[in-house]
């Protein structure tokens, strides 16, 4: 046995699958430092929510019962004094994010499954005619205020006429990849680009400040993510079972429900969690689409910046803490289905 240098003793593994002592120190050191970076703001949130106004404004105090006496005044204000506002926003958030997540996961994974297993060849000409007519319809109803029955009837008539006249002669088939790219590319749209017209659209149909409006908007905004992740997931699961189900005379819906969905629990759980988090935390769209009845939690957080009185740090911390709890709960529930951690798999190159 040759003499090992200090460097070798510290950083070269003595055996395979084992870490040298120096490496161990570095690895755990870095991980612990990052844990502190992640957990300290959370700790600060927790203790700020039990501080009195004087404790917050008088300079930093760090440890409850040692530095300062904790008080539950922020929590009392939130759940006793203003409980109506808080609980309404809370239930709104829960209903909206659950419904939006379910809707977009269902519709998105159906579309992703179809794109992964069925060959589509829609005619580009038909699609373009349809899209242009739809745009004209919307614009003439929404912006110029023409009677909607008249517009839709004439648009349908023109569509069928043009389909007979043009689409049957000129055929430019699109491929599945094109449809997929189109769907995914919708994610590039920043909410700020579309939010004003969406606002006007819901104003026209008198649906502003309703749950349904926000649910639909969130579902569509997250649809591209669902399609992207689930498409990648579906292409990676074997096709045998579906083929035998099909031989046994199963319909496409039955195959999807009985064979494919149970096989894709991991991907579905990961996608659901991501979409859930995104819709639970969304602020800008909710700000535009809700005024009072359908307000969600992020709006409540922003409302703690109460003008002249300054920011109510203690109440705000309490609201943020309350907001984290359901997400943690969801993560724990869904974690069971996700074999290797959170958000796996669905993403691949």
């Amino acid at each position: 046995m040759t003499e090992r240098t200090l460097y070798q003793r510290l950083f070269e593994p003595p055996r395979i699958n084992q870490m040298a002592i120096g490496t161990k120190v570095v690895v755990y050191g870095l991980l612990l430092i990052w844990s502190a970076v992640v957990l300290f703001p959370i700790y600060w949130l927790l203790i700020t929510s039990v501080k009195s106004a004087a404790d917050v404004n008088g300079g930093p105090v760090y440890i409850p019962f040692v530095d300062f006496t904790p008080s539950l005044h922020a929590w009392r204000e939130l759940f006793v004094v203003d409980y109506e506002d808080t609980l309404r926003a809370y239930f709104n958030s829960i209903i909206i994010s659950l419904a939006a997540t379910l809707l977009s996961t269902l519709i998105g994974s159906m579309a992703a499954y179809a794109l992964a297993r069925v060959k589509y060849a829609p005619n580009l000409v038909t699609v373009l005619i349809f899209a242009i007519l739809m745009i004209i319809t919307f614009v003439s109803i929404g912006i110029y205020g023409v009677d909607w029955r008249l517009v839709i009837a004439s648009a349908l008539a023109v569509f069928f006429f043009l389909m007979k006249a043009v689409s049957s002669r000129v055929k430019i088939p699109l491929k599945n990849g094109d449809i997929l790219f189109w769907m995914i590319s919708q994610r590039i749209l920043a909410p700020i680009v579309v939010v004003v017209p969406i606002y006007m659209m819901f104003q026209t149909v008198r649906m502003l400040d309703t749950h349904l409006a926000i649910i639909l908007t969130y579902a569509v905004v997250n649809l591209p993510i669902v399609v992207w992740l689930m498409y990648d997931f579906f292409t990676s699961i074997p096709r045998d079972l579906e083929e035998s189900a099909q031989l046994d005379g199963a319909t496409m819906f039955m195959t999807f429900r009985e064979v494919v969905l149970p096989l894709s629990k991991a991907g579905l759980a990961a996608t659901t969690l991501l979409v859930m988090i995104l819709s639970w935390n969304e602020y800008l769209l909710a700000l535009f689409l809700s005024t009072a009845k359908a307000q969600t939690m992020p709006i409540l957080v922003a409302a703690m910046n109460a003008g002249e009185r300054g920011i109510l740090w203690w109440s705000m911390s309490a609201v943020i803490v309350v907001m984290i709890i359901p997400v943690v709960f969801m993560a724990v529930v869904l974690q069971r289905y996700i074999s290797k951690g959170i958000l796996l798999g669905a993403v691949k190159g």
Binding site: I135, G142, I143, V193, V194, P197, I198, T217, V221
Partner: peptide
């Protein structure tokens, strides 16, 4: 079934992003 699987997604995206895009 083939059309019904993909149509909801297509229609929703059309209504919620093509129209706002054009209106914008």
């Amino acid at each position: 079934a083939r059309q019904l699987f993909i149509m909801p997604a297509v229609l929703m995206i059309l209504v919620f992003s093509i129209f706002p895009l054009v209106a914008s």
